[in-house]
């Protein structure tokens, strides 16, 4: 049955309606997980709070395993799902830039909006900077446009690239994620023991 739009069950005009509903739900979950606090978010870099890792890894493994079951039950045709094209080097560089911004600003783009939504001043400043950055990036795009689209691997998945079946990839990811949950819990405990200035 799914995906609904490629299968023509609903028209593509619903794109934006669905996007708004999903965006609101996403923002709500981010705020409910405590992601509107820069301290919670950057805690992952200092080792005192791994909520970011836990929330995103949980979302990832639940969605991943869920999609495989949906495909098996015939509710969703996985071959019709859009896969973002992979540009290897630009994506690595982009990830590093994003990570640096993350630890410096204390937010990622989505969480900065949840911070704005509850009226946090650091979130507002971050969002202004975000739009300024978007402006600079767009204006300077011709300078690095070639690099931006270099190393195009196409719409590949790990299964396409390595031949490992999707269920094994999902299984591996789940094990890694669960191990990370328990491992980070112990890291958190040890780091928090030596911290006095930050109350949890």
């Amino acid at each position: 049955m799914c995906p609904l739009i490629p299968n023509g069950i609903i028209s593509s005009g619903w794109d934006f309606v669905i996007a708004i509903i999903l965006g609101m739900a996403f923002g709500f979950i981010l705020e409910a997980s405590g992601f509107s606090s820069a301290r919670n978010i950057v805690g992952v870099f200092y080792g005192y709070n791994f909520v970011v890792l836990r929330v995103f890894f949980t979302a990832l493994i639940v969605a991943m395993v869920g999609l495989l079951y949906f495909d098996y039950f015939g509710w969703l045709d996985l071959s019709k799902i859009f896969i973002l094209p992979t540009y290897l080097t630009p994506m690595i560089i982009g990830g590093v830039v994003m990570g640096v911004g993350f630890i410096m600003g204390g937010f990622c783009p989505g969480t900065s909006f949840t911070a704005v939504a509850i009226g946090k001043i650091d979130g507002i400043v971050f969002t202004i900077g975000l739009y300024f950055g978007i402006f600079i990036f767009s204006e300077a795009f011709p300078l690095f446009g070639d690099f931006y689209t270099s190393g195009d691997l196409g719409n590949v998945t790990i299964t396409d690239a390595t031949g490992i079946p999707a269920s094994w990839v999902a299984m591996g990811f789940t094990v890694v994620a669960l191990a990370a949950f328990w491992g980070t819990m112990f890291v958190e405990k040890r780091v928090r023991k030596n911290m006095t200035e930050y109350k949890f």
Binding site: V65, S167, W168, T174, L178
Partner: peptide, 13 residues
């Protein structure tokens, strides 16, 4: 979660 993930290995995808 672990059981569900192992379950994906058994279903034919």
């Amino acid at each position: 979660m672990l059981v569900l993930a192992i379950g994906t290995l058994l279903v034919n995808n």
